[in-house]
Simulated scan of single mutants.
Amino acid sequence: MENANIKVLVVLLSIWISCVQAQTGTFSAVLAFGDSILDTGNNNLLMTVSRGNFLPYGRDFPHRIPTGRFGNGRVLSDLVASGLGVKDLLPAFRSPFLKNSELATGVCFASGGSGLDKFTASIQGVIWVQDQVSDFQRYLEKLNQQVGDAAKVKEIIANAVILVSAGNNDLAITYFSTPKRQTRYTVQAYTDMLIGWKTTFINSLYDLGARKFAILGTLPLGCLPGARQITGNLICLPNVNYGARVYNDKVANLVNQYNQRLPNGKFVYIDMYNSLLEVINNPSQYGFTTAKPCCCSVMTPIPCLRSGSHVFWDFAHPSEKAYKTVLP
């Protein structure tokens, strides 16, 4: 099941190349932007509680190293990069250990806890998505110095997969956990604002040469362990899931608009909501024993023995096995 799903994603993304550049058979790089679903360690040196560079995080990572990834092992950005044959692990751009030799095959700019709403990032002291664009510009400067050929750099960026996960924290933290936001904006109005910010963000990357985008929808936020603990783990929060569905529908529509409006680009929407919800509702069918978290929550103060039997690693993040399972 896991390997099959990875292969399906690889096939899906490979279709882009045949549509846009028939002569090119592989992707040059993976560049990841957004939140903790993709973050591989950009928060490690920030003054924030949104960090994963301590045990038991990274427990199943090579050499049991807590790298700053929000999970027990590899996260989604690593799995996509590996599945596409680009590289096994996607390094964090802000890592002091980043090697120049890694630049040409891609890096991660994502920041755990971040979002499209600047307030989402500022209240946690993490890297707002528009500031990630600034990091991308610095990356381009370093890449030009490393490659020494502007035309080659342009080709690398045009053939890179731009992986984006943004909106999870805006809805789960900023909107549904902030009464003032709910009083001031309806779900429809707030998600419209998110789409506006997302459009600005994608346009910024496109203007810098990015052409192949994989845009992730949000997870079923009302079914995350942190949300379900409010009801004693009995049910998912229907209002939060409703907000996620409203937003995801708008993201999918935005992707369609981009494909019509920018024929030189290729945009695909990745449904994380329904694929993960299916696993949460039927864990045993996918090789899991429970949808409860393995560690790091009030429900599991002591980490479980086998993270592979849990859909979730902690209160909000799927386990590595779950990421492999839900990839479309």
Rank of each mutant, 00 (worst) to 15 (best):
Q188C: 13
K152S: 15
D88L: 12
A92L: 07
A227M: 11
D88P: 02
N3I: 11
K7C: 00
N169D: 14
A110N: 01
V30Q: 08
Q146W: 15
P56E: 09
A121T: 04
G209A: 14
N159H: 15
Y286L: 08
F97R: 14
C236M: 07
L46S: 07
A104T: 10
Q130P: 00
I195L: 15
D60E: 14
D60W: 04
C294T: 08
E320L: 05
I17E: 11
A291Q: 10
F54D: 02
N248D: 15
N239D: 11
G83Y: 06
S77Y: 02
I162Q: 01
Y190G: 05
G148D: 11
P62R: 05
D314Q: 09
Q130T: 12
S319H: 04
E278Y: 08
D88A: 13
I162S: 05
A214R: 00
D249A: 14
R228P: 01
K152R: 15
D149C: 15
S36D: 03
F93C: 04
G52Q: 01
P179C: 09
I157H: 05
T24S: 14
W313M: 08
N264Q: 13
K250T: 09
L219H: 01
N259W: 11
L208T: 06
S319W: 02
K198Y: 12
P283T: 10
L90Y: 01
N3Q: 15
G115M: 06
A316N: 06
Y323T: 03
T191W: 09
N239W: 09
D78H: 07
A22D: 10
M193C: 05
K266W: 13
Y323A: 04
G226I: 06
R59T: 12
V268D: 06
G217V: 03
G226D: 05
V326P: 03
V255Y: 07
D149K: 13
I230R: 15
L90D: 01
S204E: 12
F201M: 08
S275T: 13
Y175F: 14
V153S: 00
L140A: 09
P293C: 11
L116I: 04
G222H: 10
G73A: 13
S18F: 10
T120N: 08
G232K: 09
C304W: 08
A158R: 12
I123D: 01
Y269K: 03
N100Y: 10
F61H: 07
T289G: 13
Q229G: 04
V80Y: 04
F27S: 07
N100F: 02
V30N: 05
I215G: 06
V326R: 03
I230A: 12
S177K: 15
V107W: 02
R94P: 05
L277K: 13
L171A: 06
L45W: 01
D170H: 06
R245V: 14
Y269H: 07
N241R: 07
V126G: 01
N159S: 15
I123N: 02
